[in-house]
């Protein structure tokens, strides 16, 4: 479904993503782990089209999207959440999701309204629907990020640290939502530091360190890997 071919990105002299080759198959939930500054968010910025790569190619469903603008990628079916939420602060929570459903989701106003209400109820934000998004707390803002991404009706969903700070119960609800989304046919790539949450849902785990993947495979195998332990103890 998604293929990164020898993808690199440098900021000035600093190489943040270093010749990454990576594939995600349809139907997977891939977890991405990695120490702070490993380049995880940068990788999503490259896939989402916010940043152009220094070199390499990105393919989505066999199509080269390397030069495509972010909104075109979104409409092809790539949805993402931001680690640092990007809410539309002066619009209501409802309108934030409505905007996503109408643009990325390509829905009419009537169906987008219904979709926004459904998605807000699903992530537990219905009671905040009328509030300006800028007045949400950080945790609610992360839920709004998820709601916006889901309303895009993506086929590939990129999640960047949405579980941090949740209580165990809230985290269980989130895992339930993610399983449901996966069950409805969405392929998921999830960057997360909360290893316990990740290993409960992912079908594959990959570890990014210093701009390259140092391990990938079954979660228990990857977590037992010597190099993975070193990368983590090193931080």
């Amino acid at each position: 479904m998604l293929e990164l071919a020898s993808l690199s990105r440098a900021f000035g002299g600093l190489v943040v993503i270093n010749r990454v080759d990576f594939k995600v198959d349809a139907g997977e939930i891939v977890g991405i782990l990695g120490p702070n500054g490993a380049g995880k968010t940068t990788l999503f910025n490259l896939i989402g089209g916010v940043l152009p790569p220094s070199s390499g190619r990105i393919l989505f469903e066999g199509k080269d999207i390397t030069a495509m603008r972010p909104w075109h990628r979104c409409r092809l079916g790539i949805g993402r959440t931001y680690q640092i939420p990007k809410p539309f602060t002066h619009m209501s929570v409802f309108e934030n999701v409505l905007a996503a459903a109408m643009h990325g989701g390509n829905m009419t106003l009537t169906s987008a309204k219904a979709e926004a209400e459904r998605v807000l109820a699903r992530v537990g934000l219905a009671h905040r629907a009328r509030l300006p998004a800028g007045r949400l707390g950080l945790l609610d803002m992360k839920q709004l990020e998820l709601a916006k991404a889901v309303a895009l009706r993506p086929r590939l969903l990129l999640l960047d640290e949405i579980a941090g700070g949740l209580t165990e119960a809230e985290c269980d609800v989130l895992l339930g939502t993610i399983r449901e989304l996966h069950g409805s046919g969405i392929t998921i790539v999830w960057i997360e530091h909360v290893i316990q949450a990740l290993r409960r849902v992912v079908t594959r785990l990959a570890v990014l360190s210093g701009g390259s993947f140092i391990a990938a495979g079954r979660p228990d195998q990857v977590l037992a890997d010597r190099r993975v332990k070193e990368a983590y103890i090193g931080t």
Binding site: R69, W71, C74, P87, L98, M102, L152
Partner: peptide, 23 residues
């Protein structure tokens, strides 16, 4: 539809692009 996108752009341009608004 375009206006909702414009309003989103007003508040956060990168965020608007990410939800499919053709900036």
């Amino acid at each position: 539809r375009i206006g909702i996108g414009l309003t989103a752009m007003r508040d956060n341009e990168e965020g608007a692009a990410a939800i499919g608004v053709n900036i």
